[in-house]
Nucleic acid binder design. Structure first.
Lengths: 122, 122
DNA sequence: GCACACTATATACAAATTGTCAATAGTTGA
DNA sequence: TCAACTATTGACAATTTGTATATAGTGTGC
């Protein structure tokens, strides 16, 4: 087991998916576009593998959370433009509720650690 | 792909490990004991598989974050009692810093979603 | 006209993480 | 003695994430 196995940033499982849906709520977009928008949520667009974004979009299209079509008259390489569906809007709300619960757990740990530090200083 | 694949609670990767270290900071404990203490951080002790806790403890012992020994004079089945090491205390602080960063990302998403809801109500 | 950088999408494969299942064992109480 | 609870462990499967690479169009500089 190499060092740093639990040393990296502690991300939420499936955090990418709700971020993408939220970005799509603001307007239709294609993958490369979304890749850049993700910086708002702490992702580093230059180091984030684009494949992850495209894969997430494909998965959510299979679930009916988004729909896509090839853009007509696009400059440059063909782009697949995604749009949020009503179903996608629904699951986004559900996911945000779950994220609130995760935040509560997170807060409990952070608070408990703060208390632990205070008890060990004079 | 079955439904609900991203339907479950959005947990943090490796969230179990810092929770265990924090509980151990309060005092030495054995696995079964820690299992119950985890409820404080949103885990459901009755549905959480004990194997996950024991595995996490073994991993952290290999890394030198905790040490353990079989308890002498224990009532009931033999218990392996864990103690936090100074190294373990150090990594706990690092992890909590990372969790603060995750919290910020979480806040941005939750806030953005709140804004999105407000813009769609009259 | 060609190498190169940038935009854009896609897929196969590997690694890491988490979850499930079952085995073992001692104690207590009915 | 049977069941319930405490207690630990390991094998195996599923899920999730990360890496690597392939394809392709456009514009810029030389």
């Amino acid at each position: 087991m190499r060092w740093g196995r639990w040393g990296g940033p502690r991300r939420l499982t499936g955090f990418l998916h709700p971020c993408l849906l939220l970005l799509l709520h603001r307007g239709d977009a294609h993958g490369y576009n979304l890749l850049q928008g993700l910086e708002e949520f702490g992702f580093d667009a230059s180091s984030l593998n684009p494949g992850l974004v495209y894969r997430a979009l494909h998965e959510m299209e299979r679930e009916g959370y988004v729909v896509s079509e090839w853009e007509e008259e696009s400059l440059g390489p063909p782009r697949r433009v995604y749009r949020l569906t009503p179903r996608g809007d629904e699951v986004l709300s559900q996911w945000v509720e779950e994220l609130r619960e995760s935040r509560r757990a997170l807060d409990r740990l952070i608070e408990a650690h703060k208390t632990h530090l205070e008890e060990h200083l004079p």
